[in-house]
Design a binder for these strands. Structure first.
Lengths: 222, 222
DNA sequence: GCATATTTGTCCGTATGTATA
DNA sequence: CTATACATACGGACAAATATG
């Protein structure tokens, strides 16, 4: 008995559709730059164009879709410049997180659990889940700030980054080598030595960004 | 021929309405927590309910309006907790900005010009303009990062803060004492000594936040 | 607690302008 | 250049939820 409409629960239909569309976008269901026809997508999700347009507005403000006047919406295609900018934001926000970290914060427990899970999934070579765990680890790190606004800003760039991953063929196993880096990062933060933690963070981000940029180049030159 | 509709230019009508509404919200036209009726506001702006709802979605995602299921939208009322969070975000982002600042960046010229303008308006006791200049100064500071995403994240919390200002009776002259602080901050950043600059930034933010919180308390206890 | 009026949530039909084949 | 397709925006309609007396 799969509910066809409003499976989201008590959210508005527009938000539910936006959530479903976001998942589809991140999963790489659509090709980058693809045009999303209002009529077609509305029919596909069984909602009216008005409702769909509300959902489109939502996703556009999150940079997952791009609006072109009188032409409609298109799947965003993060390019090299976008990736640079995303990692610039990550650097600023996550540096703030490691410096603001307080001993005994509940987020540490979650980060430890995620490191363990990441190792497990890594052992079974389930790279998709490893990627998800990796994202969650860094979200937990930002939650050290106890700042809803900082967390949602971080979620924004992370969603955009996941969109980029979804558009890369082998996006999932890009996360593979970073499981142990996260572990080092976690111990550095918990040690309380801010300098070490920032250095470890910079190393992670630099390596991660290089991996993404390289994959992006491989895709473009093909 | 003066275009009667879409005076905003080439943006969509929903975005134009959202911009107008944002200005009205920031100017304190509505009372905090006030309910915005779809019918009423749509009639007031001469747009259909569907178009207005798109604009509402936009402003809701910017935290200027609050959505309540089946009850409609209300003017957001930033409370003490929100102000704390906003300044936490400012601290993280602006620390990033002063540390990322590179010598000779064009933003410095703009910041100098804004300091001068601020002094002028301060001399003529035009506190409203002083407030605007102050905001622009800090936006220019963040633009030192050359990061569109960081700038738009900053714009978001700044808009929310301006909404809070608009809801305070004497919001405008809250900015008065900070003209000279901005000047000190600017010279500290340009000196290249990151430690000094961060210290100066912290001093500014602490003082500014205290001013806002105090005004907020005065308003609540009245 | 109930009946009624209001408002939101959603959809449809349609007219107009814009871009593209 | 014309024609087609589509986005834009409007107004009306109705069910469901909420507020009001």
């Amino acid at each position: 008995m799969s509910g066809e409409k409003n499976e989201g629960g008590d959210r508005s239909l527009a938000e539910a559709v936006a959530d479903q569309l976001r998942e589809a976008l991140i999963a790489g269901t659509f090709s980058p730059g693809q045009k999303l026809s209002e009529q077609q997508v509305a029919a596909e999700y069984g909602v009216s164009r008005n409702t769909l347009r509300e959902a489109f507005r939502f996703l556009t403000s999150q940079r997952l879709l791009t609006y072109v006047q009188n032409r409609g919406v298109f799947v965003a295609t993060p390019d090299a410049e976008a990736v640079i900018d995303i990692y610039r934001v990550r650097s600023v926000i996550q540096r703030g997180a490691v410096q603001m970290a307080t001993r005994g914060h509940p987020a540490f427990a979650r980060m430890h659990a995620l490191v363990l899970q990441g190792r497990e999934y890594g052992a079974s070579e389930d790279w998709r889940r490893v990627g998800t765990i990796n994202m969650e680890f860094h979200r937990a790190m930002v939650s050290l700030c106890d700042s809803p606004r900082l967390s949602s800003a971080f979620d924004l760039v992370l969603a955009e980054l996941r969109l980029a991953f979804g558009q890369l063929d082998e996006g999932a196993h890009l996360h593979a080598p970073y499981v142990s880096l996260n572990e080092n990062l976690l111990t550095a933060i918990e040690s309380g030595n801010a300098m070490d933690a920032v250095a470890e963070l910079d190393a992670y981000l630099l390596k991660s960004e290089r991996g993404v940029q390289a994959a992006l180049q491989r895709k473009l030159s093909r």
